[in-house]
């Protein structure tokens, strides 16, 4: 009885770790075909269509490999992109450029830069190490019909463009329903929303999402047209050979 009552409650860091697991590490592997719409403030649209393969190597929060195949825009068809993600150091990236039949390694110094011109950063696509931020529980509130934790995550290092992030994490499935990014002036500048959640093979999955840059008015909408877990992705998919010749059965 010497311990405070809330010792049995979940800590903000645990919330975020669980959220990371639910959002980025679900299943042993994962495949999704998605359409990404880049919409400018003036209403112009660019479309990217791609299939993303992901395989976990270790527990949630551990290493992962990603394989991305582009269908659209038409002139980048057959372009592929591969990422080996390590939580504690910069990831390795490879890009296959079909027009040159060339694979290039890319040293990425900036996890926060835009993913294929969208409002999502590389980190938004593949997750951010929970240990890179300090987390605090701001409040608990309902977002729509969902009970959520509202967690404030403040980056420990100053190498990111935002000063903190607020996440609305669903208490039931730990998926982030909404995120607000505040810039260094403390002004809201990016908002993530989970627009549709579907159950895929028993895993709650965000199948429609939007990232909107409040300040520029630009937004990116992503919707999954197919999604599947535990499909038995072989390890050799994530290799330079398959970057050049992606196997149809895995990417379609």
């Amino acid at each position: 009885m010497l311990l405070p009552a809330n010792v049995f409650a979940i800590s903000p860091k645990e919330i975020m770790a669980k959220s990371e697991a639910a959002f980025y590490y679900q299943g042993r592997d994962f495949k999704a075909r998605m359409i990404m719409k880049l919409i400018s403030a003036g209403g112009q649209e660019r479309t990217r269509e791609l299939t993303m393969l992901r395989k976990n190597y270790g527990p949630p929060g551990g290493n992962q490999k990603y394989f991305i195949y582009f269908f659209q825009p038409a002139d980048v068809k057959d372009m592929t992109f591969m990422v080996y993600k390590y939580p504690d150091r910069d990831s390795d990236r490879w890009l296959f450029i079909p027009a040159l039949n060339m694979v290039r390694r890319i040293a990425a110094q900036d996890k926060r830069s835009s993913f294929v011109g969208s409002d999502f950063s590389y980190e938004d696509v593949s997750g951010r190490n929970v240990n890179d931020d300090t987390h605090s529980l701001v409040r608990e509130e309902k977002l729509g019909a969902r009970d959520c934790y509202v967690v404030k995550s403040t980056p420990k290092a100053g190498d990111v463009e935002y000063s903190y992030k607020l996440s609305w994490v669903d208490k039931a499935d730990f998926l982030p329903m909404k995120e607000e990014y505040y810039d260094r002036r403390g002004e809201l500048y990016k908002v993530f929303t989970a627009d549709e959640v579907k159950n895929v093979k028993g895993f709650p999955t965000i199948t429609k999402r939007t990232m909107k840059n409040i300040q520029s008015g630009h937004r990116t909408e992503v919707s999954f047209t197919k999604a599947d877990y535990n499909i038995g992705l072989p390890d050799n998919i994530f290799s330079e050979r398959f970057l050049k010749q992606p196997p149809r059965r895995w990417i379609d």
Partner: peptide, 10 residues
């Protein structure tokens, strides 16, 4: 041989 992408000066 490696492409470097990022801010000019971190």
């Amino acid at each position: 041989g490696m492409l470097k992408v990022g801010p000019l000066m971190t």
